[in-house]
Design a protein around this nucleic acid. Sequence first.
DNA 1: CGGCTTAATGACTATTGGGTCATCAAGCTA
DNA 2: TAGCTTGATGACCCAATAGTCATTAAGCCG
Lengths: 210, 210
Amino acid sequence: MSTAKPVRKRRKEARPGELLAAALTQFVEKGYAATRLDDVAACAGVSKGTLYLYYASKEALFKAAIQEGIVPVLAENEAIAASHSGSSFSLLEKLLDHWWTRIGCTAFAGIPKLIVAEAQNFPEIAGYYYTNVIARGRALVGAALQRGVSSGEFRQCDIEVTIDVIIAPVLMLLIWEYSLGRCEQQPARHRDYLATHLALLQRGLCVPQV
Amino acid sequence: MSTAKPVRKRRKEARPGELLAAALTQFVEKGYAATRLDDVAACAGVSKGTLYLYYASKEALFKAAIQEGIVPVLAENEAIAASHSGSSFSLLEKLLDHWWTRIGCTAFAGIPKLIVAEAQNFPEIAGYYYTNVIARGRALVGAALQRGVSSGEFRQCDIEVTIDVIIAPVLMLLIWEYSLGRCEQQPARHRDYLATHLALLQRGLCVPQV
DNA sequence: CGGCTTAATGACTATTGGGTCATCAAGCTA
DNA sequence: TAGCTTGATGACCCAATAGTCATTAAGCCG
């Protein structure tokens, strides 16, 4: 029997980040209501009491876990769009690539599933996310579309609706990965999926070259 | 003050269906863990004790609520595909239209969101759903694609990946409706969305007519 | 109408898990 | 090293809720 004495170290700086990472993992995996704070704390290597030293409540922890991460990427994509020169379609490619590199490949990839699952229970968070992520992402794609239509690169289309049709497969990829994707035995082919989406899109959007 | 005496009626036949409908509504709205059986019972107009007369546990109720509804529609779509004559693209249109009529427009439309949210907590249900809904749906779309490629109607493409890219916007539409869609003030334009998806797809998939 | 079967009830139990706080000890400072 | 500040702990409290069961009464049958 090992009477392992609990080595309690004082690491005030590192705690918030570690707790947030642990919380995000647990919330994404189990959902908000089914996540126990004891588990989050254990996952971060501290006790539940310590968790309450840094976050006032379960809901506060939830909000913090969701708000870190994605929002900065929108700003980066806005910068990419602002400085872009080249075809409008290549802008769409760039935006998608950056999104994938900064979100799709990271631990933040689980956030869309979490948002979708909990939006009804947390209207305030849903509103925040809608304004700061969805609306800005839609604006970026919409501007690229408008630019392409104006220049004659893209066909005329219903911009607002097309935005959603373009974004949906990208979001669905992330959501899938954290839900039914776990039922598949074959490894997911993310890059092929995104490439196929873009290829279909290119032929669907672009005016044929003469 | 009305001391409304509770009129308790005996309706053994109607209870299971009413409980299932109430349960589905509540589960879709709040998620599994956050749904209280008292609420489900109240929503169905009975007491919690009555609920346990018909379903052995919360989990049993959950399974029953999910399993009714969607699976029969797959069989219907399989029949549509089997009896189809005409272009492969028009088959895709037919399948989508039937899915929308029988699922997208109904109370079952919330099931995809529920599955996505709870798949990790209920691997058994996720597996059932994957086998009986996802795999069969993919097979249908895959067969239509293969048919189109073989006849020269569609370009060569990676069938397996294209299936997912085609299905994703349709699933995302339903999921959206029960999550962040609630944040939008403008009414959703489902039919335009589906029409745009199909239009992009047609130009993306089909070999141009000479 | 009286008796009987069983659908329906709701008070009750047991457990879970969010949140608190008295206590402990890491590690700095003089 | 003694003393002090404060980061960390985990036993505890209590509200919420899944699940039970003795009791009630709806509605049929003779």
